[in-house]
Design a protein around this nucleic acid. Structure first.
Lengths: 346, 346
DNA sequence: CTGTTAGCGCGTTCAA
DNA sequence: TTGAACGCGCTAACAG
C-alpha cells in the first residue's frame, strides 16, 4: 500500500540501502552503462527498486550528467491543425528516441517567441525546434538569432521548420515552388481570373506563397488585380474576414480565390457560403498545407500537400544527426498539388 | 560575441565571480525570494549575468529545491482537434503560472499510457493531467491508478479530464446529459428514426454519450434499432468506416445519424457524401464536442458544445487549487446543444 | 544584508 | 566487480 500522506519519493540511496549495496552499484544496475555489475546484485537492486516504487529523478540525472533528454518545441498555436500535425510528428519521433517533449506556444508573437526561447534555455534541452513563419523586419529577430546561437554555442541543437535563411539547420518547405505549381495546375484547369488572400506582409511564408502563385500565373500572362489581393490573420477567422473584405469589392471578376493556408481558405469558404455565394459554382477556392480537414469540407479543398507529420519527424532526425553537428543542414520536403472539388475543371 | 565552438553554459558561480559577489548573493539577486539584497549588488549581478548570457539551470534548481515547475500532459492524439484544443487551454494556463508543459501521446493505448505515466514520474512534475477516455475492463487500469497514487502520494497533483469515478481530481464533462439534451432537441426538431455511431465498447465516453442519447430518445418513446448502431475507432477514419458499414444495411429507415464525436461525424459525412447521399437532404447528421471545424464543414455540424480550451484551463486551476490538495475535487463544465444546418427542422 | 557551508539526487572517477 | 568520495549547479540554512 502506498503511503497515503505526502512523503518524498524513494531515492537511489534508499534503493541501495534496501538492497544492501552501495550507491554506485545501485546506480549502475538501474541506469549506468551496460554490464558491469554482478547479476545477483542487479536482481537485488531491481527488486528493491520495484519494492520502493523507485523512479529515477531526471533533474538529478541531468545535473550529474550535464545533459538532459528533452526536446523543446515552439509552435504558434497548438490548436491550429497545421501545428498540431507537426507536433504529432515531433512527439512521435522524440518518444521513439526516449526523449521528452516540452511544448510552448508563441501565439504568433515574435516577442513572446524570444521570451520563450530565453526561458526554455533554462531547461537545457538537447534540441530546440522552432516552427511557424519567420517574420522579417521584426526588431526581435536579431535578438532571437543571438539567443539561439548562444544556445547552440553551449552544445544545444537548433532546428527550424519551414523557413530557410537563418543560420541553423532547417526543414525547408518550398512554399514558392508549391504555390507556383498550384497556379499552373489551376490555369491548366481553366481558371483565368484570380483573387488572393495573404497573411501579414512581413510573414515570409505568406510572401513566398503569394509570390510563387503570382509567378506561376505570370507564366501564362495572368496577373492578379491589386484590388483582389487582401490580407488577414493567419487563422480561420483571418480568412473569413479577408473573404468578407473581398466580397465588398464584388467577386464577379474572379474565378478562384487562393488563400495562403488551408485554415484561411476554410474560413474564406465559410464567409462565401454565408454570403450566399456557391463554391465552386460561383467561385472556386484553393488553399495550402493539406491539413486533414481539407478533404472533409464541402467541397473538398484544393490545396498543396505538405507532409506535416513528416516535417516534425525530419526535424527531430536532423537535430540528432551527426552531420548537423558540424555544419547546419537543410532537408527539403516535397510539396504536391492536390486538386479537389473546390476547383473543378472549367 | 558568443563562443562559436561548443562550450559549457555560464553557471551561477561564473556570474558571482564576474560580479565579485558570493554565490548566495548572486542566487538571491537572480531568483531568490524577494528583496533581500542591496540594489547596487543586484545591478552588478544582473549586469554580469547579462554579460555572460547566463541562464539558470532548471534541473539544478529542481534538485536543490526539491520541486520542479513543470506540468505533464497526456493526450491520446495531439493532431486530433479535441485534444489539441484542450492542450491549448492547458498550455496557456500553465504558462500564465510560469509552468512549463511537457506533452506525451498515448496513441489511445492504455498500456502506453501506463508506460508514459511511469516514465513521466521521473520528471517530478508538479502536476500530471490525463485526458482521453478511460476504458474500463482494461488490465492496466489498476496499475495506472496505483502509479498515479504513488505519484500523488509523493506530493504530485493528478487531474483527469473528462472521466469521473477515479480517485483523483477531475474536470467532468457530462456526456450523458449532453447527449440526452441533444436527443431531445432533435426529436423536437422533428426527427424520429435514428442511427448511431459509437466508439469501442469499453470507452466510457462513448458509452455515456450513447446511453444519454438513447435515454433522451426513450423519453419520447423512440428506440434505436440495434442494426442501426455501429462502432468504429474514435477517429475521422473510424467514423468514415462506421458510416460505410451503416450504408450496407441501407439508410432508408434513418432520418439522422448521431456520431459520438465530431471527428467521427465528419468522417461519416464524408462517407455519406462519397456514397452519393445528401446531408441533410437524405439523412441528417449530428456529432459531439463542437470542435472548431464543426462550423466550417458543409452543412455545418449539429453538435454538443464542450468548452474545450476551458477544460484545459480548469484542469490546471484545479491542480493548483488549495482545496484539491486535501480532497479530490470535481469541477463540472456545462455542455450546450448547438443545432446547425446538418439537422434542419423537419 | 552578505558570505560560508551543507546538502539536493545522482553519475562517475578512483582505489580497493 | 565493488564501494567511497567528489562534483554537477543550485538553494537554503546558518553565521557573521
Amino acid at each position: 500500500m502506498a503511503a497515503s500522506s505526502s512523503s518524498a519519493p524513494a531515492t537511489l540511496h534508499d534503493v541501495a540501502r534496501e538492497a544492501g549495496v552501495s550507491l554506485a552499484t545501485a546506480s549502475r544496475s538501474l541506469n549506468g552503462s551496460t554490464r558491469k555489475v554482478n547479476e545477483d546484485y542487479r536482481q537485488r537492486v531491481l527488486a528493491a527498486a520495484a519494492r520502493l516504487n523507485y523512479s529515477p529523478n531526471f533533474s538529478a540525472q541531468a545535473v550529474a550528467k550535464g545533459s538532459t533528454s528533452t526536446v523543446a518545441l515552439l509552435v504558434s498555436d497548438i490548436a491550429d491543425p497545421y501545428f498540431s500535425s507537426i507536433a504529432a510528428g515531433v512527439i512521435r519521433a522524440a518518444e521513439a528516441q526516449g526523449l521528452i517533449v516540452t511544448m510552448a506556444v508563441t501565439e504568433r508573437s515574435t516577442e513572446r517567441e524570444l521570451e520563450l526561447v530565453r526561458a526554455l534555455r533554462g531547461q537545457r534541452p538537447r534540441v530546440m525546434i522552432l516552427t511557424g513563419s519567420r517574420s522579417d523586419g521584426s526588431t526581435s529577430q536579431a535578438a532571437l538569432i543571438a539567443e539561439l546561437q548562444a544556445f547552440a554555442g553551449n552544445g544545444g541543437r537548433v532546428v527550424l521548420i519551414s523557413q530557410e535563411g537563418l543560420p541553423f539547420s532547417t526543414v525547408v518547405v518550398d512554399n514558392y515552388l508549391g504555390a507556383r505549381a498550384l497556379a499552373n495546375s489551376l490555369v491548366g484547369a481553366g481558371y483565368r481570373r484570380f483573387a488572393a488572400i495573404g497573411g501579414a506582409r512581413a510573414l515570409v511564408t505568406s510572401r513566398d506563397r503569394l509570390a510563387g502563385f503570382a509567378d506561376g500565373l505570370a507564366e501564362h500572362g495572368i496577373a492578379i488585380h491589386p484590388d483582389h489581393i487582401v490580407r488577414g490573420e493567419f487563422t480561420r477567422d483571418g480568412g473569413f474576414a479577408a473573404a468578407t473584405e473581398l466580397l465588398t469589392g464584388g467577386l464577379d471578376q474572379v474565378d478562384l480565390v487562393f488563400a495562403v493556408s488551408d485554415v484561411m481558405a476554410i474560413g474564406a469558404m465559410s464567409a462565401l457560403r454565408e454570403a450566399g455565394i456557391d463554391v465552386p459554382g460561383d467561385v472556386a477556392v484553393a488553399g495550402f498545407d493539406d491539413i486533414d480537414t481539407a478533404r472533409d469540407v464541402t467541397p473538398a479543398l484544393t490545396t498543396v500537400n505538405i507532409p506535416l507529420a513528416d516535417l516534425g519527424r525530419r526535424a527531430v532526425e536532423l537535430a540528432l544527426s551527426d552531420a548537423a553537428v558540424t555544419a547546419d543542414e537543410v532537408t527539403r520536403v516535397e510539396t504536391r498539388v492536390i486538386l479537389r472539388a473546390s476547383s473543378p475543371p472549367r
